[in-house]
Design a binder for these strands. Structure first.
Length: 280
DNA sequence: AGAATAACCTGCGTGC
DNA sequence: TGCACGCAGGTTATTC
C-alpha cells in the first residue's frame, strides 16, 4: 500500500494529467470498498444541470486524495493495495478494477484487491474538506508542513507510555508515516521503536522530526518506494529505487555499523531496527 | 481519556 | 500438486 510519498506521487500525477479536464462518466463495478461508494456519484460530480464535472484541483491530506470539482470533492484512499492508473479508453479490465472515472478519451481506473480503500464524496470544496470533513477531524499535522516540529511531538507525548513507533503510526500527532517509513525514520534518528514516547526529550524529537521529513522527502524524490504493486497514475509500474536501511532487512548487516538488523512485532505490525545504532 | 485488540479483504510465499 | 498458515504498505470500531 502506498504511504505518504506514494500518495503524493499519485497526487502530482493526477494533477498533471487531469486538472482542467471534464469528467464524462463514472463506471462502478464493485460498490463495497471500506465503505459503500455513494449512490449517484456521477450526478453529484456533474451537478443538477449535468454541466459540471471539470476537475479543478488535486490535493492530498494525509493519505487521502482530494479531487476538487465545482460541486464538491471526491475523496479517494488507496488503503493497503489500491492503485490509480491513467489509461487510454478500451484497455481490458483486470480483476479488482472497481471504478472507472472517465475523462473523455482517458480513464482513471481504481483497482484495489483488498478493498481497504475508499471512494467518497463531500459536498464541500477541496479546501474546506481538508480541514472540516469528519475523516480528517482527528488527524495530526502534515509531516511536510510548517506546523510539524519536534516541539509539537514533544508536547503531544508527555506522560505517554506508548512506544514511539505506535505513536507515529497512529496519525494522531503527525500523519502519513506508515509502517515502512516509521521504521526508517526511527533508524535515521537513532531512536529505538519500543521506547515510550513520553521518555523522549525535546532535542531527540527535533532530530526525529527532521528524520521523518527527510525520509519522506527522499522517498518522494525517488518517485515512491519499491512496493510491489504500487503503480503511478500514469500506469507506469513503479519500482523505484529507494533503498531501505532497516525495513525488510532482518538479519542483514546495518549499513552504518554492520551489525544485524532485528525484526520485532508491535501491535501486530513488523518493526525493524538496528540494536546497535538505536540504543534508546 | 489512553491503550490494546479485532476486524475489514485478497494474494502470495512457505512449509508440510 | 494441494492445502494450511502467516504475512502484507491502513484505518476503523470495539473493548477494557
Amino acid at each position: 500500500m502506498p504511504e505518504l510519498p506514494e500518495v503524493e506521487i499519485v497526487c502530482r500525477g493526477l494533477a498533471d494529467a487531469f486538472v482542467g479536464h471534464r469528467l464524462t462518466g463514472v463506471i462502478r463495478r464493485f460498490n463495497r470498498l471500506r465503505w459503500p461508494i455513494p449512490d449517484a456519484l456521477e450526478q453529484l460530480i456533474l451537478g443538477p444541470s449535468g454541466a459540471g464535472g471539470v476537475l479543478r484541483s488535486v490535493e492530498r491530506r494525509s493519505k487521502y486524495l482530494l479531487l476538487g470539482f465545482d460541486t464538491g470533492t471526491l475523496l479517494i484512499h488507496l488503503g493497503m493495495s489500491g492503485t490509480l492508473r491513467r489509461l487510454a479508453g478500451g484497455v481490458p479490465l483486470r480483476v479488482h478494477d472497481h471504478v472507472d472515472f472517465v475523462f473523455g478519451e482517458h480513464v482513471l481506473r481504481y483497482n484495489d484487491p483488498r478493498r481497504f480503500g475508499a471512494v467518497l464524496w463531500s459536498a464541500d470544496t477541496a479546501q474546506a474538506t481538508a480541514s472540516g470533513h469528519a475523516l480528517f477531524r482527528k488527524l495530526g499535522v502534515e509531516p511536510l508542513g510548517e506546523q510539524f516540529t519536534g516541539r509539537l511531538m514533544y508536547e503531544a507525548t508527555r506522560r505517554r507510555a506508548t512506544p514511539i513507533k505506535q505513536v507515529l503510526l497512529s496519525g494522531a500527532v503527525v500523519v502519513g508515516v506508515g509502517n515502512i517509513y516509521a521504521s526508517e525514520s526511527l533508524f535515521r534518528a537513532g531512536i529505538r521503536p519500543t521506547v515510550a514516547a513520553g521518555r523522549i526529550g525535546a532535542s531527540r524529537y527535533d532530530r526525529l522530526a527532521g528524520s521523518i521529513r527527510q525520509t519522506l522527502l527522499d522517498a518522494i524524490a525517488a518517485g515512491g518506494s519499491t512496493l510491489r504493486d504500487f503503480v503511478a497514475s500514469t500506469g507506469q509500474t513503479g519500482y523505484f529505487q529507494l533503498q531501505c536501511n532497516v525495513y525488510g532487512r532482518t538479519g542483514q548487516p546495518c549499513r552504518v555499523c554492520g551489525g544485524p538488523i532485528r525484526a520485532i512485532r508491535q501491535q501486530q505490525r513488523a518493526t525493524f531496527y538496528c540494536p546497535a545504532c538505536q540504543r534508546a
